[in-house]
C-alpha cells in the first residue's frame, strides 16, 4: 500500500499544481499539446461511449429492428410505455433486485469480517488472499462449470454431503424458489475477494497507535473494533456497498450460464431481458428502452452514493 492513491481522494487534485504554476491567464497557452495528448482518448470516448449512449437513447424512441437497417420509424414513448406496463420487464427488474438483496449483505459483511480477522493475523496473509481472492479473477464460465458440478442433483458434492448427514438437498438450480439463492451463493464465493481486499486496505490505513492507546486504557479487542475500527471504516463501507450494489445489478453471466434465466424465467435478470428482446426477438428499439430504464436505476444508486460520501466528508 505504498505509493498508491488511497481509496478516497479529493478528485480536485488540481490544487496540487496551484502553488507552483502561475495564474492561468498569465500563462502561455498549452492548448495545442494538450489537444494532441487528449485526442486519442477523446475520439475513442466519443465514438464508443458518448456516441453509443446518445444513439441508444435515440433508438429507444424508435421501432428499430436488428434485421432491418435504419430506425424503422419513430415510436415516441411507446417502448417505455410498453416496458413499464409489461410483466416481463417488472419480473426481470425484480429478479435483479432480489439477486442484489441476496448478494449485497453477505458480500459486504463477510468481506468486512474476514478482512478484520486477516488484519489481526500476522502470518500467512498470502494464503488468505489466495483463498478468497483467487476465485474473483476466474472467468464466469469457469465458475459456472465448477458450481454446476457442485450443484448436480444426487451426484454433486453438496447433495452427497447433505445426504451423509441425513438431509435432503433442495433442487438447487432446478427449483424456482432455490435457483436465485443458489446463484447468490455461487456469486458470494466468486466475488467476495474483491470486497475483502478493499476492506483490508481500509483497515491498514487506521493508525496502529489508536489501538495501542485504547488497549492501554483497558479496551477489550471487541470494544476496540466497535469504537475504532467500524467508525473509521465508514467511507470504505460506503464504497464497498455501492460498488457491490452496482455490480450485482449488472448481473448476467451467472444466470445466462447456470440457469439460462430459468426455471420458467424465475432468474431472468434485466440484462438478460435486453439480450433476449434485442438479440433473440430483434426488437432493438424496445431493448434500447429497457437498457435506458436500467441505466436510470444504476444512476440513482450512484447518486445515493455521492450524497452519502458528501455527508461523510462534512462529518469528518
Amino acid at each position: 500500500m505504498s505509493t498508491q492513491t488511497p481509496v478516497h481522494t479529493d478528485s480536485d487534485a488540481d490544487r496540487g499544481i496551484a502553488p507552483t504554476a502561475p495564474r492561468p491567464s498569465a500563462a502561455p497557452g498549452q492548448g495545442r499539446p494538450a489537444a494532441a495528448f487528449l485526442t486519442p482518448f477523446v475520439v475513442l470516448y466519443l465514438l464508443f461511449i458518448i456516441g453509443p449512449a446518445l444513439y441508444g437513447l435515440v433508438l429507444s424512441f424508435t421501432d428499430a429492428s436488428l434485421v432491418k437497417p435504419g430506425l424503422n420509424g419513430g415510436a415516441g414513448f411507446g417502448n417505455y410505455a410498453e416496458a413499464l406496463s409489461n410483466a416481463d420487464f417488472w419480473s426481470s427488474l425484480w429478479h435483479t433486485l432480489w439477486f442484489t438483496i441476496l448478494t449485497t449483505p453477505p458480500l459486504v459483511i463477510l468481506g468486512f469480517l474476514l478482512a478484520l480477522l486477516a488484519n489481526r493475523v500476522a502470518r500467512g496473509r498470502w494464503f488468505f488472499r489466495l483463498a478468497f481472492f483467487a476465485p474473483y479473477i476466474l472467468p464466469s464460465a469457469v465458475v459456472a462449470l465448477i458450481w454446476m458440478w457442485l450443484y448436480t442433483p444426487a451426484l454433486g458434492l453438496f447433495d452427497t454431503m447433505l445426504a451423509k448427514v441425513g438431509m435432503t438437498a433442495p433442487s438447487w438450480l432446478g427449483d424456482a424458489a432455490w435457483a436465485m439463492p443458489s446463484l447468490a451463493i455461487t456469486t458470494v464465493w466468486w466475488t467476495l475477494g474483491f470486497n475483502f481486499v478493499l476492506y483490508l486496505a481500509g483497515l491498514q490505513e487506521i493508525p496502529r497507535d489508536l489501538y495501542e492507546a485504547a488497549a492501554m486504557d483497558g479496551a477489550s479487542p471487541w470494544q476496540q473494533i466497535r469504537s475504532i475500527t467500524i467508525p473509521m471504516l465508514g467511507r470504505t463501507t460506503t464504497l464497498v456497498a455501492v460498488l457491490q450494489v452496482i455490480a450485482s445489478l449488472k448481473v448476467f453471466d451467472q444466470m445466462y450460464l447456470m440457469t439460462g434465466g430459468g426455471p420458467n424465467f424465475a432468474t431472468r435478470s434485466i440484462l438478460q431481458l435486453v439480450y433476449d428482446e434485442g438479440f433473440t426477438n430483434y426488437r432493438v428499439g424496445y431493448a434500447a428502452a429497457v437498457s435506458m430504464l436500467f441505466f436510470l436505476v444504476v444512476l440513482a444508486v450512484s447518486a445515493v452514493w455521492f450524497t452519502l460520501v458528501r455527508r461523510q466528508e462534512k462529518v469528518v
Binding site: F48, I49, G51, P52, A53, Y55, G56, L59, A64, L66, K250, F252, L271, V274, Y275, G278, F279, V284, A287, A288, S291, M292, F294, F295, V298
Partner: peptide, 10 residues
C-alpha cells in the same frame, strides 16, 4: 452493459 444494443448496430 447498457450500451450493448447501440454498440452492436455501430
Amino acid at each position: 452493459q447498457v450500451l450493448i444494443v447501440p454498440w452492436f448496430r455501430e
